[in-house]
Structure formats: structure tokens, C-alpha cells
Simulated scan of single mutants.
Amino acid sequence: MAEPAVPHATHQVPAHIAIIMDGNGRWAQQRGLPRIEGHRRGVETVRRIIDATREFGVRMLTLYAFSAENWRRPQDEVGALMRLLELYLKRELKTFVKNRIQLRTIGRTHELPPGAQRQLARTIKATRDFSDYTLTLALNYGSRSEVVDAAHSYAAALAAGEISPSDRSWESFSRHLYTGDLPDPDLVIRTSGETRLSNFLLLQAAYAEFVFTPVLWPDFGRDDLAQAIAEYSRRERRYGKTSAQCGGSDEQ
């Protein structure tokens, strides 16, 4: 039987979904189109998935938009991606405000082109007071560089006496990550058939559930998201406990 187009009432809906949006270039190449056309279609998918997550009751969405490694791509493609980011933010600002969507970023955004930085700042400022729904864009993001930055920040706080040397808790350190005041993702989705994390939220996804789909990002739609949520709802999240401790019947 096919999965329902909308998560069933009995499905456990994740509060926070993170998505590795993969396959834009391959989508374009399969159709004999320039790679940037795949990225343009990918932006349309972003709009569609934001609407779907809000409809399904998911309150937080994090999208891997540009990795720290993506600078290695051809410069014309990188330039086009930055222009596309700036245009997207300009076009969507009214929608963000109307739907009370707070925009946030993670990553070394200070290294982005000035135009993209300015538009990000405008959008973040205009939406910072909203709490109904949070969209986080991972831009110039890499989990390893995040750990380096967090370690520097933690060491500075320790030297300043803001942290006790005896406090070696994850909770204390995690506040210095880019995501310090965000909950960890419950579900991580990667499109296009690849089955790796590619330096994305390596620490935050320690207990996340993963769904890998062969669907290329420009083709990923509302029903695909519903299927991923349905798959998530079938998982038992034990966090180191046994199945019996979590209410299941079998010891694990």
C-alpha cells in the first residue's frame, strides 16, 4: 500500500528536519541543461518543502545550502549560486514575514560575497522576532570548521572565567557550536541516492534518524517528504537504552 500524501495522525512528526539538498547538477545534466538551471529548480523545491513542513507541523527546517567545500567548484557556478542566494532572499522576504518564518544561518557567513551578506542581514533582522517556524540555512558551513570555531570560543570563555575548568559536559561545549541555541535535528534527509553526511551536522546528528532517497532535489516534493516522515515514525529512538526501556517488547 502506498504511503499517505499527508503524515497520518498516528505518525510521530519530527520537530526538526535537516536536509542535504543533493542532485541539482545531475538533474540538469540529465536534461541537457546548464547546471545552474538545476540550482534554480532546486530553489523552487525549497519553497515547496518549506510549505510542506509547515503544513505537516514541523517547526524547524535546516537546509545544507552551500558547504565550505563548495568553493572548489568552478568559479562561474559559485558566482551564480551566490547571486541566486541573494535573489532568493530578496524575493522571499515578504513571504517570510507573512508566514512568520524566522531565518537563521549557520556557517562562516562572513566569508560570503558582500551582496549576499547584506541581504542575509536584512532578512535575519526583519524576521528575528518570529518564533512560529525557523528556517536555518547552512552557508559556507562545514562541521569540522564548526568544531574548530567552537573550540576557540570555548577556550576563550574558559580563560575569561565564564566556564568552570571542572565543567566538561557536552551541554556546556555545545552552546559554542553555531547551533548552540537550536535543538538537534530529529531527522536528516539526503536526496539523490548518496548515503553520506558530507561534513553536515556531524555532532548534532549523533542521535538523528536518517532517510536516504534516490529522488534528485529538484524532483523532491510534498509526497516524498511525507514518506520520509512516515519512515521516521516507524523508527524507535532509544538513545542508548533498550527497546523495553523505551516501551518496546524486544531487548536490544
Rank of each mutant, 00 (worst) to 15 (best):
S131K: 02
G180R: 06
R83S: 13
M21A: 13
D186C: 10
R40E: 02
P214Y: 12
S166E: 15
E251I: 05
A126W: 10
L187M: 03
A228N: 07
R118Q: 06
G248R: 11
D224E: 15
E162P: 09
S153W: 15
S67P: 09
G57M: 10
G79P: 08
D186R: 01
P4Q: 13
G115K: 08
S249N: 05
Y178D: 03
P165D: 12
D186V: 03
A5S: 10
E194C: 06
R47V: 15
E231I: 15
E231R: 07
Q119A: 09
V148F: 11
A151D: 14
F220Y: 03
G42R: 03
P14R: 00
Q119E: 13
V43C: 09
G115C: 07
S153V: 10
T134A: 07
H11L: 02
P7R: 00
A156S: 15
L216F: 07
A160T: 15
S174Y: 12
A244L: 11
A208D: 00
S131I: 01
A15W: 08
R31W: 01
A208H: 00
R168I: 12
A5G: 13
I17W: 12
G180K: 09
R118A: 08
D76V: 11
A116F: 05
L197H: 03
F200T: 03
R48Y: 07
A28Y: 14
I36Q: 03
T134G: 02
E77H: 09
D76T: 14
A228Y: 04
S249M: 02
R190M: 06
L87W: 09
F200V: 06
Q117V: 01
L81T: 12
Q204P: 07
T134P: 04
